[in-house]
Amino acid sequence: MARPSCRAQRMLFEATEGAAEMAARRGTLVGPLRLSAPVGFGVLHLGPALYRFLADHPAIDLTLELDDRFVDAAADGFDAVIRHGTIADTRLVAKRHATSQRILAASPAYLARHGMPQSVADLKAHCGILYANRDADWRFAGPAGWTVVRPRAALRVNNGLVMRGAALAGLGITLLPNFFAHADVATGALIRIDTGCDAEGAELHIAYPRERSASAKIAALTRSLRATFGEPPYWDSPPSGTAGLIPR
């Protein structure tokens, strides 16, 4: 079957959104909503937050596609994308949605074998579990500006869940957004490493195609996620005995 033309897709979208907006004026959000998000954040945090959103808006037909690549939101037909990091695509309207500290962490077993780094310079002698899509990922703020460290790679991978798993297995030190590591740090499965310098932070953005105005569904989703994640987000809050659980 031939794929619909861009004009036909646009007409279908406008008709669908028109019906959805009319329902929204009556106080009901209805119709399809297609999202893309990174795998790790989607599994750990976005999925549970969306369950709550759908419970509040049961007439929405939600499709969530988890993918660590930077999808083409407009061409691939997504209503919105949630991304970790800067969104450079000028065809999108991007809004910062949440922040996360990035922390150095390793297992107790690894640190028992190799010692606890005391400074950024000490990291060069350690094994690193590195994010494959960024060569200069380990950046730290110091009195003289940014310092980039490149430890010996024990593993390079483009997925935060695998990086976290490798750190838990004792393969080395990893630098991860706190939304991956906060529960393991709270239980002691991972030890947070303090070098005296802060790692470059992380930001989560929600973005939608510029040619489409922000729909009532996207606005409601944004409010729901912000209410669920909190400000600051719960993964950056001090442990309260409920690590890893989304507060209600």
Score class of each variant (00 low, 15 high):
Cys197Met: 07
Ala132Arg: 07
Arg3Cys: 11
Gly172Val: 03
Thr86His: 13
Leu225Pro: 07
Lys95Gly: 02
Ser215Thr: 12
Arg192Asn: 08
Trp146Leu: 14
Arg96Gln: 14
Thr63Tyr: 02
Arg192Pro: 12
Thr242Lys: 12
Ala2His: 13
His45Gln: 06
Pro108Gly: 05
Leu204Asn: 00
Lys124Ile: 03
Pro239Asn: 04
Leu175Asp: 01
Glu211Ser: 09
Arg212Pro: 03
Ile246Ala: 11
Phe53Glu: 02
Gly77Phe: 13
Val39Trp: 05
Ala166Gln: 07
Val149Leu: 04
Ile191Thr: 14
Gly47Cys: 04
Ala136Cys: 07
Leu12Arg: 15
Ile206Thr: 12
Arg91Trp: 03
Pro108Cys: 02
His114Phe: 15
Ala199Met: 01
Ala80Asn: 07
Asp68Ala: 05
Thr228Lys: 09
Cys127Gln: 08
Pro151Ile: 00
Arg134Thr: 09
Arg69Tyr: 13
Leu64Arg: 06
Asp194Ile: 03
Thr86Ala: 09
Leu175Arg: 01
Gly77His: 10
Ile193Tyr: 05
His84Leu: 12
Ala183Ser: 14
Asp72Ile: 08
Ala169Thr: 00
Tyr110Lys: 06
Gly128Ile: 02
His182Tyr: 12
Arg248Thr: 14
Asp135Met: 00
Gly40Ser: 14
Asn178Met: 06
Ala105Gly: 11
Pro38Ile: 07
Leu104Asn: 01
Val43Asp: 10
Arg34Cys: 15
Asp194Pro: 06
